[in-house]
């Protein structure tokens, strides 16, 4: 941005500076014809040199800005590759575990079928088939979630009350936070305007973030839910008193398959799906840790007017 502006200024200066020199020279000519030729020659020479210097500077700046753009593109590319790597490992991990179990069970069935199977062996075979069944549905669950992630959602805008949407999801969450002694504190802005947005998609996002918060706190803590409005955005902030997220992971938590939960408990797709949804609604999700406090803070902001 700055580079581009500087470049524009210099390009302009390239003409303005010699022009002003010429104007001075012209004035000198008018005033005093006798003092003349040498001064004018000097002024002209100066103007020429200035023009040359500025032109060179403009060229350098142009090259620098092109280079910068190139580096920026490379950086995005390498970040994409990095994210892709994480996705691939994630998929491999999530699919390989059930595959491994399926292979083992299949082998067990084969062993059991080798000789004429006893009733005991038959029961074992039936058990194995049940396990295979459940592992296959675990795999298909993962692929479905992936497809769900990749799917672009047709958003539909209808008027919604953000506080109410949050309240609905909190009612669901509170059934599990009560026994765990997690306190939910609502800090709602009572003057939130109705927002044109897609209510079911927003519910999904809120519930995703709330579930993460509950899992982060585990027990004996608090979840603080704040809503507020700025000039053009409506925001919801969900803060928990869990262990928080280290700053170096703030950008990665939205990558698909990034998860801190033990294998089998959460695929690491919740936040990436949420971010996608909010982006499609024209908004953004940010994560940080509130200063001087424990825990993570997620802020969801969507435009008050869609399509902006």
């Amino acid at each position: 941005m700055n580079l581009a502006r500087a470049r524009r200024a210099i390009t302009l200066g390239q003409y303005v500076y010699p022009a002003s020199c010429l104007a001075i020279a012209a004035m000198a000519w008018e005033r005093d014809r006798t003092g003349g030729a040498a001064t004018i020659a000097a002024a002209l020479g100066l103007a020429g040199i200035m023009w040359w210097v500025l032109r060179l500077a403009a060229r350098w700046l142009g090259a620098a800005s092109a280079e910068r753009e190139d580096i920026g593109n490379q950086l995005i590319q390498s970040q994409k590759t990095l994210a892709l790597g994480e996705i691939s490992t994630g998929i491999a991990h999530e699919i390989n575990n059930p595959l491994n179990i399926i292979v083992q069970e299949a082998e067990l069935i084969r062993v059991n079928l080798n000789s004429d199977p006893s009733p005991e062996a038959l029961r074992e075979i039936r058990d194995s088939l049940d396990v295979i069944d459940s592992q296959v549905s675990r795999c298909s669950d993962i692929t479905h979630k992936l497809l769900d992630f990749a799917r672009s959602r047709k958003t539909v805008s209808q008027f919604a009350d953000i506080n109410r949407l949050l309240e609905d999801m909190l009612a669901l969450v509170e059934r599990e936070t009560g026994p765990k002694n997690i306190r939910i504190v609502r800090l709602f802005d009572d003057d939130m305007p109705l927002i044109k947005t897609d209510p079911p998609l927003l519910r999904q996002v809120f519930l995703n973030i709330l579930i993460n918060a509950v899992q982060a706190v585990e027990k004996d803590g608090g979840i603080f839910v704040t809503t507020y409005c700025t000039n053009d955005r409506a925001c919801a902030e969900i803060r928990d008193t869990g262990p928080g997220i280290p700053a170096q992971d703030w950008s990665r938590v939205f990558n698909p398959f990034f998860t801190t939960k033990p294998p089998g408990e959460g695929t690491g797709l919740g936040l990436s799906v949420s971010l996608r949804i909010i982006n499609e609604l024209g908004g953004n999700i940010t994560v940080d840790s509130p200063p001087d406090k424990r825990g993570a803070r997620f802020t969801v902001c969507i435009p008050r007017q869609p399509g902006r």
Binding site: L172, R203, L207
Partner: peptide
């Protein structure tokens, strides 16, 4: 439960 909630909503239920 939260789990059934997120399952329902992510499978396209309008409301809960």
């Amino acid at each position: 439960s939260m789990q059934s909630g997120i399952e329902g909503i992510s499978h396209g239920a309008y409301d809960y």
